[in-house]
Design a protein around this nucleic acid. Structure first.
Lengths: 365, 365
DNA sequence: TGTTAGCACTCTTTTTCTTTGAGTGCTAAT
DNA sequence: ATTAGCACTCAAAGAAAAAGAGTGCTAACA
């Protein structure tokens, strides 16, 4: 499992120590204590005191000893006190160490896996539908918000454009991409099309758009195509405009959010910040993939423009044929049950990665 | 304007008076005072005292007089006091009277109308898209949640079913209804279809499904169709299954919610109740249309299973060819700016009603 | 040297009590 | 019928006191 945690240390009171030193300073007991503090804080949300830790079964020292260790952990920047007479809460560094090394990541039982599988929309194995269903599953099971970035549109090409008459002057445009995604759009024309016109359109689309990347298909391309249509120009131009909008739709559709209300319903996270974050999701979340991080990353603090205080974001990549095809993210409170959520998201992205690769194999047989 | 307000008087301390009596007891000044209390409470959310009312320009009596009137209004069940030494707030009956008779409904300026029009998705005049855009507009402009019930699917019939190959063993099913709505679905088959099979399917669909009501198309119908297919049964059955699911999709799509987060962000409304209400939206909101109320109704208290405390719901019907085609609802705080929101929702539903009727005319020319 | 009991100290939280002030209802005068 | 005046009520705000959780430090102990 490759996990990478980012934090621009806002609270790193010590110069970065190399691993050796840290290990010396952090003996096993201190690590267990830190883990226990984080564990407890994640559950209760209350600062954790020495007494509570001492009461744990696998800690066999007195509160006084624990106090000493905690003071040390605070010195090292892993814990902090809200005020003098309170227990400790983890700092960003504390969370980072916890996630990287300390926590006891839950191993998924077969039942867990079955549960997760049951959410996946396996019957319709387009990348889109799969990722979407995974997103919904995570939002529901973790009570968090989830974000999905599907870059498939960027890399995919048009495989088919159809026009289907559905009523007087009403036509449905249908666009299918190589990634198996479909969009349709209703167009209202000034005139009814003759059979000949429709045939021409189909042929013209097949000849000129099949294999064209979604990303390339902009207003300019369309204008050129319109200009080259000759006699058919006037009647068919609106349809081409529709084609352009469909492509636009594929591109826009890049980032979707699920379970935003789970976040809004919590009062330990600032509502305004949540709303602002999702309003700008297109710009903000864009960076989610641009960086060359590992397959799974945990962001908090002010990492990569992630700006919701008191909350964190786990992002995991989905691959197709070795290339990043999208990513799935969970946004929850800072004190998230990482030990559970990380395996969940990991399993789902792995599963999807497999599913969409399998398909491909299948297709190419 | 036909407005109907429902309240199961939980606080009606007097036996129902007939209109005559009420008018006698409620002279013009008392009515103005009641209106002023509600107006002020809607804006500030604070109990309103006699002094504040006396300060209003069109009230030319002393606080003492107003106190007497307010005491009377309380006796009549229109106002109440949170506690002895506080101002008054409206009761449900107070709101009802206010909405029915007292409030000064805003007349929409041309600018307002232009604003509202700009939200409507007029280019793609399917009932669905229109209602959807109106729903979004209202959610945004009023900062409330909106609910949409589209019964069009129930009454509409299938006008077209197409199957389009999009890759190895991958087919897109496309279904168009008489109300102009379109849905598609990806099907994965075990075999590739021959041209002949596809032609048969198209013809078979045209012969057997065109004109069939969405509501009737269930598993049974499909089974019969499969059985009657003869040789093609094995290969095409999965497609028919897909057709069935498409119809199901149209039916499910009945109730949609927009701007739920606007409600969640307020802290004067119980989060849990909001979530529960929307979880059960399918059952709860179903009644919205079943009753034979007027075109526009305002629900609060415990009307018709509306169970969010401290909030109210305005529902307005959308007609098509004289028949109820759907409805649009706004759910907001009890102290909603009814004088503004009601004209808004009224305008939008009228506009949509016109638009979808116009189209029909158009289509039938 | 690491661990621990004991204790004084700190600082939030909770509780209790007091004060303040908005708003009322009633009475008597206009 | 309206209004000024006044005593009264009660939530909200403020102040003071008590409680309690948790700490750091010291000194004793294994």
């Amino acid at each position: 499992m490759l996990i990478q945690v980012l934090t621009h240390g806002t609270d790193e009171c010590f110069p970065r120590q190399n691993a050796k030193e840290v290990i010396e300073l952090l003996d096993d007991r201190k690590r267990r204590i830190l883990a226990a503090v984080v564990d407890s804080y994640i559950v209760t949300g209350e600062p954790v005191g020495s007494k509570a830790i001492a009461a744990l079964p696998d800690i066999r020292v007195s509160p006084a000893t624990i106090r000493n260790d905690m003071a040390m952990l605070e010195q090292l920047g892993y814990l902090e006190q809200p005020h003098t007479s309170a227990g400790r809460i983890p700092t960003y560094s504390g969370y980072r160490l916890y996630i990287d090394e300390l926590m006891n990541a839950k191993t998924l039982s077969d039942e867990d896996k079955r549960l997760l599988d049951s959410y996946l929309d396996v019957d319709v194995p387009t990348a889109d539908a799969l990722i979407e269903s995974a997103s919904k599953a995570l939002a529901e099971l973790t009570n968090c918000a989830t974000v999905v970035k599907n870059v498939a549109p960027k890399f995919s090409v048009i495989t088919k454009v159809e026009v289907i008459p559905t009523g007087r002057r009403m036509y449905v445009l249908l666009m299918v991409t190589s990634s198996g995604n479909i969009k349709n759009k209703v167009c209202r024309l000034e005139f009814d099309l003759t059979n000949e016109q429709m045939e021409f359109f189909s042929k013209y689309m097949a000849e000129n758009l099949q294999g064209v990347s979604i990303d390339e298909l902009d207003e300019n391309t369309i204008e050129q195509l319109v200009a080259a249509m000759g006699t058919y120009m006037v009647t068919l131009a609106p349809l081409l405009q529709g084609v352009c909008e469909l492509a636009e739709g594929f591109r826009e559709n890049e980032i979707r959010v699920e379970g935003e209300k789970n976040l809004l319903a919590r009062q330990d996270i600032n509502t305004e910040q949540i709303v602002r974050f999702f309003e700008n999701k297109n710009e903000v979340v864009k960076n989610m993939l641009d960086d060359s991080f590992g397959d799974l990353q945990v962001l908090f603090g002010e990492d990569g423009g992630f700006i919701i205080e008191n909350s964190s974001m786990i992002v995991s990549k989905i691959k197709k044929d070795g290339r990043t095809a999208g990513s799935l993210g969970v946004i929850g409170p800072m004190r998230l049950d990482y030990a559970k959520v990380i395996p969940y998201i990991e399993y789902l992205t792995d599963r999807i990665t497999n599913l969409i690769s399998d398909n491909n194999e299948d297709d190419e047989k």
